[in-house]
């Protein structure tokens, strides 16, 4: 059965750490980092990398358009 795997890339300098992507993610991939960007925001990052299915929910709700989503279908 084909398995879908995804990955997101967060533009950490653009991210304002609003947490909306973290609560929106259906597979609890994202979390806010303990580090901050140059503006002092705790940016979002992939904490559970393997759980991502590339559904783009985080990117849809992101108010600052800082999430890019990639997705692959793995055969077998």
């Amino acid at each position: 059965m084909a398995k879908i795997k995804g990955a997101v890339v967060v533009d950490t300098e653009r991210c304002k750490g609003c947490n909306l992507c973290v609560v929106a993610c259906p597979t609890n991939v994202l979390a806010l980092a303990t580090q901050v960007n140059s503006k002092g925001y705790n940016y979002s990052y992939m904490e559970q990398e393997n759980a991502c299915v590339g559904c783009s929910t985080c990117a849809f709700v992101c108010p600052d358009a800082c999430i890019t989503v990639y997705k692959v279908k793995l055969d077998k």
Binding site: K16, A59, D64, A65, Y70
Partner: peptide, 26 residues
């Protein structure tokens, strides 16, 4: 290996420019 241009499904629209928005977080 997933993060490659051919696997892209969503990115910031090009009509939206790179200026960081002044709106509050969220």
């Amino acid at each position: 290996e997933i993060i490659k241009p051919e696997n892209l499904v969503y990115k910031k629209p090009s009509v939206l420019n790179d200026n960081p928005m002044h709106y509050c977080p969220g």
